[in-house]
Amino acid sequence: MMGFSHATTGVLVGVAVVAPVAAAAGAPATPAGLLAWALLGAGAALVPDLDHPSSTATRSQGFVTGLLSRGIRALSVAVYEFTRTPADDSGGEHRHLGHTPAFAAVVGAAVGLLCHLSWWASAVTAWFLAFIGLRALRRITRGWLRATLGSWAGAALGAFGVAALFLNAWEVRPAGWTVGLLVALGMVVHSLGDALTSSGVPLAWPFRVRGRRWAMLGAPRRLRFRTGTWPEWVVGALSLTGAAAAGYGLVA
């Protein structure tokens, strides 16, 4: 699983893309705000893997995310069966609907609308994303902090702190639609990351590619890598470096 590297690309999106957009919309970046965007972005980039029963996102909150995973997998299979062509021959669960830019746009729009309508929706979304993000990023921590974030209670308390930070770190709170944008872009960057691996993802769905609506697309074969190998760590390192540089540029 690429949980950690996906989380780092989400950090980059949160700091380098969504934070400047939110600033342009009236919520200027602060160091505390950038930290919140980074951790929420890490969680957003793990959302697509709720379609896998043993992913970091699915295992993060036990029964709750397990139930959510089963629902997403059932929806993915149903959509696959309804839209497949005779040339499609995959199962329809992991790396299917949840890994399409079209689905990311729908989820992002729904989250953005809910966060626009309700402060509580923003709070719950921030807590949920921060929880998943902290669980994934604990790999760059050590000692007691790593052990704490590895437990449900520790990650939950940390996520409460991040959610409170996100909701109170600004003179003008970011608009709800910026949270939806973060979710959508986090999901998209996750799929682009998977497109660098051997299996590919259905980036073109619902459009047909060579007769297949669920064609697994990706980078040229010579540029792809297997999960868990050194190129994945390079992606993570470059993402965190880019996020740090972007954050410094925003607050300097």
Rank of each mutant, 00 (worst) to 15 (best):
T125G: 03
L35T: 13
P53Q: 02
A87Y: 06
L40K: 08
L75I: 11
T141M: 06
M216D: 05
R221T: 00
G98V: 00
H96R: 07
G71N: 08
S198C: 00
G154R: 01
E171P: 00
A136T: 06
G91T: 08
L165C: 14
G3V: 07
R222Y: 10
A25P: 00
A156R: 02
W119D: 15
V209T: 15
V179I: 15
W214A: 09
L181S: 05
L145W: 09
A147H: 09
S54C: 00
S191Q: 12
M187E: 09
R142T: 14
G133K: 12
V124A: 15
L34Q: 01
T8I: 01
D89A: 15
L50E: 01
T83M: 05
L35A: 15
G186H: 03
L196Y: 00
A104H: 09
A121G: 13
E93I: 01
P48S: 02
T56H: 05
V162T: 09
A169S: 15
I140F: 11
A175W: 09
G133E: 10
T100V: 05
A155R: 02
S122C: 11
A243R: 11
V106P: 01
A237L: 15
R173C: 00
W127R: 06
L40V: 11
R212T: 08
D89S: 15
L203Q: 04
T197H: 05
L114V: 14
T229Q: 13
L145G: 02
G249C: 05
G154K: 02
P174H: 11
L75E: 01
W37N: 11
G154T: 07
A164V: 12
A104P: 10
T56D: 13
